[in-house]
Amino acid sequence: MLTEILHTLPQVLLDGLTLGAVYAIVALGYTMVYGILELINFAHGEIFMTGAFIGTAIFLTMTGLGVMSAMPALLALILVLVVTSVLTGVLGMGIERVAYRPLRKAPKLITLITAIGVSFLLQDLVRFIAELKKGNYIITGPSLFTNQVTVEASSLFSTFNNAQLKSSSIILIVTAIIMMFALDFFINRTKWGMAMRAVAQDRETAALMSVNVNKVISLTFFVGSALGGATGVLFAVQYGTIDPYIGFILGLKAFTAAVLGGIGNIRGAMFGGVLLGLLEMFAAANLSILSGGVLGGEYKDVFAFAILILVLIFKPEGIFGKAVTEKV
């Protein structure tokens, strides 16, 4: 049994890292908004999905116009990432302005229900537009970065099988790492990042330090949504086919990753995302072996949410979260 698991381990690790990178970046959006507003923005998964659709639409348009053949694919990807990030960032800001800001003083449950409503609205809006333009809401983008790289894992340890890695996976992982480091730098080293941290801790006092709280909250939504949208593009390039419902389960899993790392904690979200991706891929590959054929790889979602339940029971503040003590 152990030998079978070890055979596939290199492939599991690489696939898990790829998926984990997606979870990590989407989890950042959840954790940033929660840190600043104590709101679980359940529409964030749909921002990711919208990013995937916008990116794919731009790629298909560029292919139709013959632009894709005239420029390097990597340059085209960078261009699409930038445009999509800006558009989804603005979309996130718009959602905050229209749906959340008027409810800022309302009970948390009302805002949560609104977030779920926005999520369904985006799903159906994207589906409507996709069907209008394409006659089908399941879209397949152009094939990019499909060449495989073989990772010679067997030379490290004879029990390992060699692993295959698409160049799109390398791009996804590298881009995700760049985005994570950039965000970490922005939050911890810049004027506006510091303002975000201040607003997250105490809105009133931050305002008395001349911090424009509304601007900081809008900026948080912009940054979180821009990262989510960019990840959507990378996801579409990696997995090829997208539909308006990809954001729902993925969003829930990214939220699980945020809780796992400690909601409100930026580095925790990154770690939680990667860890969840690895665990999920491990489950997909090995659940059948571990359960003697009773459970198959299709139970990987159950595995992911079982982790959420266990974390909430035994360490509700998450791995990197601090237990909150309240003075009474």
């Binding site: 730098f185 004027k191 105490d202």
Partner: peptide
């Protein structure tokens, strides 16, 4: 009403927020 997670230096730098004119983009790229 200090920001307890931030260092003394960061708390004081927040006091300079109003004086710092850098926008989000320039500040982000530092």
């Amino acid at each position: 009403e200090l920001f307890s997670h931030l260092t003394v230096l960061d708390n004081l730098m927040l006091g300079r927020h109003t004086k710092m004119k850098t926008g989000v983009l320039a500040g982000g790229f530092y």
